[in-house]
């Protein structure tokens, strides 16, 4: 294909090819943007789960939670060994209430020495940190409530299922 003639005019084939490439680039860019957003959200979810498990493992909590635990759940004030196994996500389709695609995150954790009575509080803290991390990544804290439930990105809304203990 000849790009230009002797008078400096671009050939029609070149313009057609350029137009098709431009349209294709636009379609791919939209797809990449969505995938990238989901990728960032998943990264943030992993970071949040890791942060939540660290807080639980070291038993150093935000002051309000500590005061509650000191009076009601003293067993949570000691250190423990907890690991995040994996995080699964399930696309639940478009949600008209939030006008976004809804994704449910499920964290799998293990801690053989953790008593069943402690698991609720520990799981809630992990999920809270997952949602908080996502909101912070996309700077959408103002769209959610104080528990960051649900967490928002630009095109998705994230909820968390109860932590599954394996």
């Amino acid at each position: 294909m000849k790009l230009m003639d002797s008078k400096g005019n671009v050939s029609i084939e070149y313009m057609l090819l350029l137009g098709i490439l431009f349209l294709m680039s636009l379609m791919i860019a939209t797809h990449i943007y969505d995938a990238n957003e989901l990728n960032i959200a998943m990264g943030a979810a992993r970071s949040g789960a890791s942060e939540g498990s660290t807080i639980n493992n070291l038993a150093i909590y935000p002051k309000n939670s500590f005061d509650i635990y000191e009076n009601e759940k003293e067993e949570l004030l000691t250190t423990r060994c907890l690991k995040i196994v994996k995080i699964e996500f399930q696309n639940q389709g478009y949600n008209p209430n939030y006008k976004r695609n809804k994704i449910q995150l499920k964290v799998y954790a293990t801690g053989p020495l953790i008593k069943p009575v402690e698991r609720n509080s520990i799981g809630d803290r992990i999920n809270y940190n997952v949602r908080k991390s996502i909101c912070k990544s996309f700077q959408t804290e103002n769209l959610s409530n104080i528990f960051y439930n649900p967490a928002f990105s630009h095109k998705y809304v994230f909820t968390t299922a109860d932590v599954r203990w394996v």
Binding site: F66, D67, E70
Partner: peptide, 11 residues
């Protein structure tokens, strides 16, 4: 021990 709004205890 208190640090940046976080609190922990050692018995």
């Amino acid at each position: 021990i208190m640090i940046d709004g976080m609190k922990g205890k050692s018995a």
